[in-house]
Design a protein around this nucleic acid. Structure first.
Length: 804
DNA sequence: ATAGGGTTAG
């Protein structure tokens, strides 16, 4: 084809009429423009030829020229030509409308449309504008224009209906919409057109994937429409196949696919991407093989899907092979392939290589940017992610979502919620993933109320069947200690994955339901769900909190022997925690000595915490020494060590450690520190409340209050006591009530104030004593802290959560 | 001159 144009160009002189000659040339170019990558260069040379030969094209040639410029991304040239026509006809205008719409500029398209006088407007012109809107995701504008068209008595044709149906497919989210449309189409007599029926099937398909509609019912109707068509074209087949794929019914899709006589490339691609999406990597690769055997040549769509499969399965080398194949066969660089390549790199742990691919990419799109953003986020490189996010030339809802959940997963819940609110304010579409990120932020913050509100909004929007949102909710309720809610969400989720199971096991384990956590874990194994490394972390710490020492050791052992997951440092840390909490410190020490690699900070921290609880000063000092060597930040170690001494009654040594801290300029105050969570300032008083030093701490507290006032915070009477003497007596709130009452007296608490007592309680099962204590000190509310977790007593109810 | 299908980012 390309040669045909060139020969024709060379034989210019031999051609009779010059107008005819150009018309033929343009026609040829027009026919091949889909495949020719050098078409725009060729086109410019033809155009230049016209100008130098002094040929002034008549309108149809000019229109042709504009049209071809548009289709070869020469929009600038097209616009230039168009603007110089004194009175462009409707054909030229329609071309420009379509061109602007295709390049994402519906506003510019509308300008041309509005300037088109009613007297020359026609149905095609309207069709182009309606399509323009639906291509730019503005279904409402498309329909409005359709109504305008009817009002002005333009006769819609099958193209109009096809476009309007496409627009409606964007909006339809209820079964009734489909039924009504179906009737309207039948009445209009347009149902005889294949393209209209295809579009109607599309509406059913799109609507079926709406969370508010029944996918099964609607796909059934779509399928009925499909099989009742007198004859089906390629598009009918692919619409129905992809419809099933999109609605997660791969078996149904495969059935239709197998029934195709001549399987189209598009259909192969749809099946492959469907398998990849569902995580059926093997089936996807098998389809690729079958496709190859059937003599089909994989194109960029196929390669993109396969690359994505490789990324998910960690098949780095296969991925590289696909990349090599693409480089060999495709002359044009397809961004999507490179985007998938970026993902392959980072999912295989090569974040910086992913960035390199991105940097070398000449034409980047939103997906490229988002892929790199995800790379940084998932690698925990949150600062780079933040910078990259700010650098992005444009952001869609996905970019925001990635950033929100990234912040939440890296413990920056407050930032996550802030970003979510910004998103809401800016009117960016809030999808289920965005909610999932916000809910995770609440889980991180322990913001129970905000999280519950988000849950309500989630249900309102019909997102409650979303897997990611469901998982976020299970985690959130789990961390907040509302176990029943966590369980309910889990049970009502339409489908669950490993993350959901892990979340519920964690929820139970963290709140003293160790036995149930273990039972649930066993149930998961019975259902043949393969546990991952997170599952083992979760179940071992559940054992640790419930004191199920042998069970915990058992899981640690089978993790490698049965499930071939080699224990990481975090697993060892949980094991050490399990043993040291139970006071089996020497056993813990033995495990540390026999570890296959050098124990890191988390291991020694777990041991040190155990030493503090069980008053083993010697081992504690040894662990602390290791920690001083291993970590640059010594704050936590100092505090743990001081408390170990104090717990053993060695006040002088404890005081020495505190002095050491001050001397070394450790930022955290030895006796007291404060943080701001949401709008409340929480003050942490670290130290023994019965110790004479309490007066010193009290003075410090007053100083702190002044400081806070200066900074604009309004300090309330929410004090925090970290009482290490109660460490071992986990249910012994009442025995200390006297002592605490004295302290609160010292702090001159007004009656009925909120008291926040932060103690090292592991399991909160003692509501009775808590409420008894409350009435004794005339508190309205008590919050008891255990590490990052808190238990909240108020109005006769107890709830739990995470503090930061 | 206008329509309807397949890919990639969580």
């Amino acid at each position: 084809m390309k040669n045909a144009v060139k020969t024709s160009l060379q034989n210019q002189s031999a051609t009779g009429s010059i107008a005819n000659f150009y018309a033929v040339q343009l026609q040829l170019l027009c026919r091949e423009h889909k495949h020719a990558t050098s078409a725009s260069a060729l086109l410019r040379s033809i155009h230049a030829n016209m100008i130098t030969s002094g040929f002034s094209p008549r309108s149809h040639i000019l229109n042709n020229l504009i049209n071809i410029y548009c289709k070869n991304s020469g929009l600038v040239y097209a616009k230039h030509l168009f603007d110089r026509i004194p009175q462009p006809d409707v054909v030229a205008r329609t071309t420009m409308i379509a061109a602007y719409s295709a390049s994402g500029e519906p506003k510019l398209a509308r300008e041309v449309f509005d300037k088109t006088p009613l007297s020359i407007r026609d149905t095609v012109c309207y069709n182009a504008m309606i399509t323009g809107y639906s291509h730019n995701n503005d279904g409402h504008a498309a329909i409005k224009l359709f109504l305008d068209m009817r009002w002005k008595n333009f006769q819609p044709d099958e193209y109009t209906y096809t476009s309007v149906l496409a627009a409606l497919a964007l909006i339809a989210d209820h079964e009734m919409h489909c039924r009504q449309l179906h009737c309207a189409v039948a009445k209009s007599g347009m149902a005889n057109f294949k393209c209209v029926v295809n579009a109607l099937i599309s509406v059913y398909v799109r609507c079926a994937s709406s969370p508010l509609a029944s996918s099964l019912l609607l796909m059934d109707s779509a399928s009925k429409l499909f099989y009742e068509m007198p004859e089906r074209d390629d598009l009918s087949w692919t619409t129905i196949i992809t419809g099933y794929v999109k609605n997660d019914d791969l078996d149904a899709a495969r059935k239709v696919f197998d029934g195709m006589d001549e399987k189209l490339l598009v259909a192969w691609n749809a099946m492959i991407s469907g398998y990849v999406h569902k995580g059926f990597i093997f089936e996807a690769l098998d389809m690729l093989r079958k496709m190859y055997l059937a003599g089909m040549k994989p194109d960029e769509f196929t390669c993109t899907s396969i690359l994505s499969a490789c990324a998910d399965a960690g098949l780095f080398l296969l991925g590289k092979q696909v990349h090599a194949y693409v480089r060999r066969t495709e002359e044009k660089i397809h961004v999507s392939v490179y985007n998938a390549l970026i993902t392959l790199y980072w999912k295989c742990g090569r974040v910086d290589d992913a960035r390199k691919v991105f940097d070398n990419l000449v034409f980047k799109d939103l997906v490229s940017w988002n892929a790199v953003l995800s790379a940084y986020v998932s690698a925990g490189r949150i600062n780079e992610a933040k910078l990259f996010f700010d650098e992005m030339p444009e952001k869609n809802s996905l970019a925001w979502t990635v950033m929100i959940s990234g912040l939440a997963q890296n413990g920056l819940g407050e930032d996550g919620l802030k970003l979510f609110n910004q998103m809401r304010v800016k009117g960016i579409e809030l999808c289920d993933y965005a909610f999932a990120g916000a809910i995770t932020s609440c889980a991180v913050l322990g913001a129970l109320e905000t999280g519950c509100q988000l849950h309500a909004q989630l249900i309102q929007r019909g997102y409650d069947s979303s897997l990611s949102a469901g998982n976020a909710l299970v985690t959130f309720y789990g961390r907040s200690g509302v176990i029943e809610a966590a369980r309910n969400v889990f049970l009502t989720m339409p489908c669950v994955d490993l993350v959901s199971w892990n979340a519920l096991v964690a929820a139970l384990g963290q709140h003293g339901y160790g036995v149930q956590a273990v039972e649930l874990f066993e149930q998961m194994l019975d259902e043949n769900i393969m546990p991952d490394r997170i599952s083992f972390l979760t179940v071992i710490s559940a054992c640790s909190h419930a004191g199920l020492i042998e069970k915990g050791r058992h899981y640690f052992n089978i993790m490698h022997s049965v499930y071939k997951i080699s224990p990481g440092e975090d697993h060892y840390a949980r094991l050490i925690d399990l043993l040291s909490r139970a006071g089996r410190l020497l056993e813990a020490k033995e495990v540390i000595q026999n570890m296959p690699y050098k124990p890191g900070a988390p291991i020694w921290e777990a041991l040190l915490a155990g030493c503090r609880t069980h008053r083993n000063v010697d081992l504690g000092v040894e662990a602390a020494e290791q920690l001083f060597e291993l970590t640059p930040q010594h704050d936590g170690t100092y505090i743990l060590l001081a408390n170990t001494f104090a717990a053993a009654g060695r006040w002088d040594d404890a005081a020495k450690v505190r002095k050491l801290m001050r001397d070394q300029g450790v930022k955290k105050e030895p006796g007291c520190s404060w943080i701001k969570v949401e709008n409340t300032v929480h003050v942490f008083l670290v130290g023994d409340t019965a110790h004479p030093e309490i007066q010193v701490v009290y003075n410090y507290l007053e100083e702190l209050r002044l400081k806070m006032r200066k900074m604009g915070y309004v300090p309330d009477t929410q004090y925090v006591l970290h009482d290490m003497e109660t460490e071992q007596k986990e249910y012994a709130l009442s025995t200390h009530s006297e002592k605490l009452a004295v302290v609160f007296g010292l702090l001159k608490l007004p009656r009925g104030a909120t008291i926040r007592v932060f103690k090292n309680l592991r399991i909160c099962g003692d509501c009775h004593n808590a409420f008894k204590f409350m009435s004794k000190v005339e508190a309205r509310e008590i919050i008891v802290r255990d590490g990052n977790r808190f238990h909240h007593f108020r109005d006769g109810e107890c709830s739990c959560g995470n503090y930061w």
